[in-house]
């Protein structure tokens, strides 16, 4: 634990991530103004002229929209990563347990999923079931599955070569028990690190999707759509394009730093 305080990357990442989560949670109970309330008289006000960060083309408070946007972006991304990580991890440990033709099929499947960028699979899904949070979650989650399947497989295979696993096999433990008792606990650190980093990637992807109109439908504020809307007013109100992008970048930066910091911290090989 004391090690953590000597890692600036970890500390900065933790601080930004905590701030992000706090703002997102706070938006559920309080925002400076109702985020979707229009007030045409106050439209396109500069930061501090109205509210903290000004208003958009309908006079809606930008700061409030950003706060709710944090919740929308974070909750979508968390659901997507949770879904993708669970399926991927499950596939990875099962393949590590069984090997053989199952490994071939699952790994080829991963290659295939990797070949379709999430933006495009979201477009395909969106063309039929309509765009919205569900489409975004599924599209991002599908892309996360191979990431976690590959990671878990290679990590789990290493554990399977250890002496204590051989001992457990010798004692007649079933493969499922060994996976539960020995494999999963020993690879959980790597999975946690990956979850953190993929959460950042999910936020970036979600922003891209809602920028294209494939995310949550209006009037729910999302960072991506705020940027899309700002395009019309780049000359008049450039700050509208500044804040949501800054929020995305900061959120992703924080989660990436937290992930890297955790990786350093949880790595048992490096105890110096």
């Amino acid at each position: 634990m004391r090690k953590a305080f000597h890692r600036p990357v970890f500390l900065i990442g933790l601080f930004i991530s905590l701030a992000l989560f706090s703002v997102a949670l706070l938006s559920l109970v309080w925002t400076p103004f109702p985020p979707t309330k229009m007030n045409i008289v106050q439209k396109l006000k500069a930061p501090l002229e109205f509210g903290l960060l000004g208003t958009d083309q309908f006079g809606r408070d930008v700061a409030s929209a950003l706060m709710v946007g944090a919740w929308n972006s974070l909750s979508t991304s968390i659901l997507a990563v949770a879904l993708g990580a669970s399926i991927g991890t499950m596939a990875g440990v099962i393949v590590a347990m069984r090997r053989g033709w199952l490994e071939l099929i699952v790994m080829r499947g991963c290659d295939i999923i990797f070949a379709v960028p999430p933006i495009l699979s979201a477009m395909m899904l969106g063309a039929f079931i309509g765009s919205g949070r569900f489409t975004a979650i599924v599209a991002i989650a599908v892309f996360m599955v191979p990431v976690f399947a590959r990671l878990t497989l290679s990590a789990a295979l290493q554990i399977w070569t250890r002496d204590y696993v051989a001992a457990a096999v010798g004692m007649g433990r079933s493969k499922a028990t060994i996976t539960r008792v020995h494999v999963l606990p020993n690879i959980s650190n790597q999975i946690i690190v990956q979850v953190t980093i993929q959460l950042g990637l999910a936020i970036l992807t979600e922003a891209g999707l809602s920028f294209l109109g494939l995310g949550m439908p209006p009037p729910a504020p999302t960072w991506g759509r705020m940027l899309a809307d700002s395009q019309t007013f780049l000359g008049q109100a450039p700050w509208l394009a500044l804040m949501p992008g800054l929020a995305i970048a900061l959120a992703v930066l924080g989660l990436n730093m937290l992930g890297d910091g955790l990786r350093d911290l949880l790595d048992p090989r490096d105890d110096s």
Binding site: A207, G208, I248, L250
Partner: peptide
């Protein structure tokens, strides 16, 4: 961390 489309804007 920065989205390419935001850099574009």
């Amino acid at each position: 961390a920065v989205p390419a489309f935001w850099v574009g804007l």
